[in-house]
């Protein structure tokens, strides 16, 4: 584990299972997953299609509820919360970045970023200020007043990362954030994500491409809903260039 991955645990999954459907159509998407994510740490989740990667991400952020096991997010046990409480946690502690259609088309970049803050009751002006700061941190402050359809895919993903980490949120859950992007833009987005984690956030990244997983501090492999393997701590992709590959 790198020195930056010694922060407190922000997300902890213990024995998490998730079963969809019942009877003959029953599908076990997660089958006893244990996972910790610390502040300052970017964890990549890899696996084949249908292995349970996205379910893991949804359960981790409270969009979905586990069938059994516990998910502790920012000190709160999700199963103890009602839907409203989980929504509050998503406003204050965790942000999502999806593959595409990440932004609300009717809102500008700044308004998209300010959305969780405004939903949390922060005054519009204050929320805008925080949104502009977040956009500056991902390097696109000048796009604050553009609508999503006036931006490129890479720019949209940067806005989504800014939204995921606006205000007090310190955990970003990214589901194939580079899946709809070309390789150069994808690298660019990963660089931004890495930088935000290096600045103190935590990240859980689902991807099926090793070159993007290489940006993570460690990678866990999921198969049939079970974490079957994992890498140890490592540096960033720069390590690849300096011969630090194991």
């Amino acid at each position: 584990m790198s020195p930056r991955a010694t922060g407190p645990v922000v997300l902890a999954l213990r024995g998490v299972t998730r079963v969809h459907g019942s009877g003959a159509s029953q599908v076990r998407a997660l089958a006893g997953v244990d996972l910790d994510v610390r502040l300052g740490e970017l964890v990549a989740v890899m696996g084949a299609s249908g292995s349970g990667k996205s379910t893991l991400l949804n359960v981790a952020g409270g969009l979905d509820t586990p069938t059994s096991g516990t998910v502790t997010l920012a000190g709160s046990e999700l199963s103890a919360l009602d839907p409203t409480g989980r929504a509050r946690l998503r406003r204050r502690s965790v942000g999502y970045v999806f593959q595409d259609f990440n932004l609300i088309p009717a809102l500008t970049a700044a308004e998209n970023v300010a959305l969780p803050r405004e939903l949390d009751g922060v005054r519009t002006r204050q929320a805008r200020r925080e949104a502009h700061a977040a956009l500056s941190e991902v390097g696109i402050a000048e796009l604050a007043d553009r609508f999503p359809d006036e931006m490129s895919g890479g720019q949209q993903q940067r806005v989504a990362i800014a939204r995921a980490l606006v205000g007090p949120r310190r955990l970003v859950l990214a589901d194939e954030p580079t899946g709809a992007l070309d390789s150069v833009t994808g690298e660019d987005v990963m660089r931004v994500l890495r930088a935000r984690v290096d600045a103190g956030a935590a990240g859980l990244l689902v991807t099926h491409e090793p070159r993007f997983a290489a940006w993570a501090d460690r990678t866990v492999f999921v198969r049939d809903g079970v974490v079957v393997d994992g890498t140890g701590e490592r540096g960033g992709p720069e390590v690849l260039l300096t011969g630090g590959v194991r």
């Binding site: 952020g61 839907p83 406003r91 999806f98 609300i104």
Partner: peptide, 12 residues
């Protein structure tokens, strides 16, 4: 879009 709002912390 509504699911995105939910993901951003919007409740029902």
């Amino acid at each position: 879009q509504l699911a995105l709002i939910a993901a951003s912390g919007g409740d029902r």
